[in-house]
Amino acid sequence: MVDHKECSLLDEHIASNQRKVSLTCVVNGVEICDTIDPTMTLLHFLRDRLKLFGTKESCGEGECGACTVIMNGKAVTSCIILAIEADGAEILTVEGLAKDGRISILQEEFISEDALQCGFCTPGFLMSTRALLDRNPDPSEEEIKEALAGNLCRCTGYLPILKAVKKAAERERKELK
């Protein structure tokens, strides 16, 4: 329970606007400079400020992975990262996966293996997988499960996702040499 009295300074804070901080980062290859409230999460920065709605909010507590983005090469849950922590960072979201008007091999395999149903968890799975294949182009089944177990999906039962990741890894090794 929150003690309401303790929050009585809040309006003053909002009014004074003193707490705003400036943030510079690179998102999907584009440099972004913004002034934000320090309480803003990275997820809400991406969605509310940059209007990149591909990254989803589902649990808000890092338990489901729907908000996964790649930050400085690592897959992270953006719902429990402050946007200001991304100052100076390089961020990749689902919107940055397709290049030159073509969707990536990974995205193609998610489609052809039907590794998605409602699609709400899909951006998170794609980002976790992208980070995995970037550090390990030939992951074992166990390594795939380890990397993706933090992403929850209620629709697919995961088997189609596992297959899509394996096929994408194989194709990337062949086609992206």
């Binding site: 969605r47 990254t55 919107e95 489609i111 899909t122």
Partner: peptide
Amino acid sequence: YSRKDAQKKVTGQAQYAIDLD
């Protein structure tokens, strides 16, 4: 056949109620 809306879903284009602004 692959599902018709799959490409929208893998590119982040599919808009859900939570994305409406």
